[in-house]
Design a protein around this nucleic acid. Structure first.
Lengths: 332, 332
DNA sequence: GTGAAAGCGCTAACAC
DNA sequence: GTGTTAGCGCTTTCAC
């Protein structure tokens, strides 16, 4: 049973493709197709379970109703949750998501960007690593609808939905200092991401404003390709340095560190305060407790979709930068 | 700057569309296009950064190189992780994923299934809720390439990648009994999913084989639409019933229950053993500790993609049912 | 070695 | 009220 096309329907019913097409697209009345004809066509279409070919429609209309979702890793709960929220918001408007995980490598990012363009996605939602602005600049020059979230690049001008990174982190670290922490280490992934740099800056500022010497040895970078083991090793280093607090720049490392702490440093668990950017449910009860900076993910998703909608509709070039306020959740 | 098409390239270079198309598809040699022409075309294409329109190609070829990934919720770490593995495996073959989250509702599932068909996906990977077989039967009758994982339906004949549910759960519960648990409750989501029923059956069998009375009041179903709060409430019920162990049919409820246990039943935390289907890193150190049945997610992803590849290539109808062995991780 | 032309399934301007 | 037709961008058969 080959798939039926509009042409088949038209022939079998003795109408033209046009008439059938109009009726299928609810333009029957507008185009003065008689009620009777409309009903006949609709009934038949339902009977044979005709499914329009969205690809042909897309080609004709130059619009695919798909959006590319480019992030470091869809299995990271932060991107998965925002992805889910975006999926639902877009579905209401008839759009669907193609996903692409970059693993923070420029190579995969470029490959995926190309793929999205080839597939004629109508827009792009991206947490880019911004290692290389090449393709992004090209797309921006063509006014390709894009909205960036979570990550930014100071030299790239575009639509951003972000959270306050520096001050939020600063506040979280100051909170730890207020509660007595004096020797504070930091663990981060790839710091060549501007948003993460800002978080690290916030950490530095908090220390210097409280007259704590910044010791660069206490700022440890974990290996992206081996997050869990590397986090364990770097945490070990900080423990050996006898820190009384550790700051994490995202929740994935924090989760791994909680694991490492419980498995390998159980005896020190009361002596080290954890502070994390991003929240996780388990921070409510984990040992050690984790004071965290919670990002407003619903708002992020809402704004992202809203702005993308605007960009796709507007002929004019808009460039908004929306910075949301994260929330400090103190857990002592 | 309008996007260039093959036609533009051909005109600007003084060749025909055919020649350009051949060269672009690496058929230059095969079609006896002169080396010189080939180089000229390739150089120009690179210079103007020509991007082929995948939609047009798809329409012509009847193949979109996209796969639909239909699951209950992409923000569930289990589906996100498998999704990520599948994404990578498929990317190597030039396929990409469109995602669809059903929230376990038939309405959304049917909507998404239709969407996938309209979009002419080449295949479908699904963790269906199987509430209603209607659309799936239709697709199966058309030999639409589909591979099911995680969930099965006894009346639906298709390609399945599953894990042993009943015996694995039985083993986990027996393990708890061996270590002294006597009054064992169970918490599950929507049990109208066959795979979950099997897990519950495993629980029942373990009890009866050990001469523990099965008390249906101790089998609690949580509300899907309000997982966290409902889990808390149902857990409360079991605690009040003074169970000495609780069994969970998936990791999401277990995580919520750990949270509820720590926040609301801290004093009982030593008295209740947790047993969970699905694993989570945090089970290594959470209070209470969780003995879990870990699914082999890499294998699931690999088999799923392999079988889907076979189905898409074969003209013949194959129907494989692969049942993988999960691993019991005892944590006491 | 290269090109003309048909056609994938659909939409929509224009005709009658 | 309904039909004819061109064309979206690409592939591929057949011709020269």
């Amino acid at each position: 049973m080959k798939k039926k096309s509009i042409k088949d329907i038209a022939q079998e019913l003795g109408y033209s493709k046009t008439t059938v097409s109009f009726v299928l697209n609810n333009k029957g009345d507008e185009k003065n197709i008689s009620k009777k004809t409309q009903e006949k066509i609709l009934a038949y279409v339902r009977e044979v379970n005709y499914q329009p070919n969205q690809i042909a429609k897309s080609l004709k209309k130059g619009k695919t109703n798909t959006i590319g979702y480019l992030i470091p890793d869809i299995s990271n709960p932060f991107y998965a949750k925002i992805g889910r929220l975006i999926e639902d918001l877009l579905a209401d408007k008839g759009y669907h998501l193609i996903i692409g995980s970059t693993d923070e490598t420029q190579e995969k990012e470029d490959l995926l960007l190309n793929m999205f363009v080839n597939r004629q996605v109508d827009g792009l939602i991206l947490a880019s690593s911004f290692e290389n602005l090449g393709m992004l600049n090209t797309l921006a020059a063509q006014r390709f609808p894009m909205v960036f979230f979570d990550r930014e690049h100071p030299d790239f001008f575009g639509n951003y939905i972000l959270v306050e990174n520096k001050n939020a982190m600063k506040g979280a670290v100051q909170n730890a200092i207020k509660h007595g922490s004096k020797k504070i280490g930091l663990l981060s992934i790839t710091p060549n991401v501007y948003s993460l740099e800002l978080r690290i800056d916030g950490y530095r500022e908090a220390l210097s404003e409280n007259e704590i010497d910044i010791d660069d040895h206490l700022i440890r970078i974990v290996d992206n390709n081996n997050l869990k083991e590397s986090t364990k090793a770097q945490l070990q280093y900080l423990i050996d340095e006898q820190v009384d607090a550790v700051v994490f720049t995202n929740n994935q490392i924090t989760a791994h560190a909680i694991w490492a702490m419980n498995i390998f440093h159980k005896e020190k668990i009361e002596d080290v305060r954890f502070v994390s950017f991003d929240n996780l449910d388990l921070f409510d009860y984990s040992q050690p407790k984790v004071t965290s900076v919670a990002q407003p993910i619903e708002k992020i998703a809402n704004y992202t979709v809203d702005i993308l909608g605007e960009v796709m509709n507007e002929k004019e070039h808009i460039s908004k930068r929306i910075v949301l306020e994260p929330k400090l959740i103190e857990r002592l």
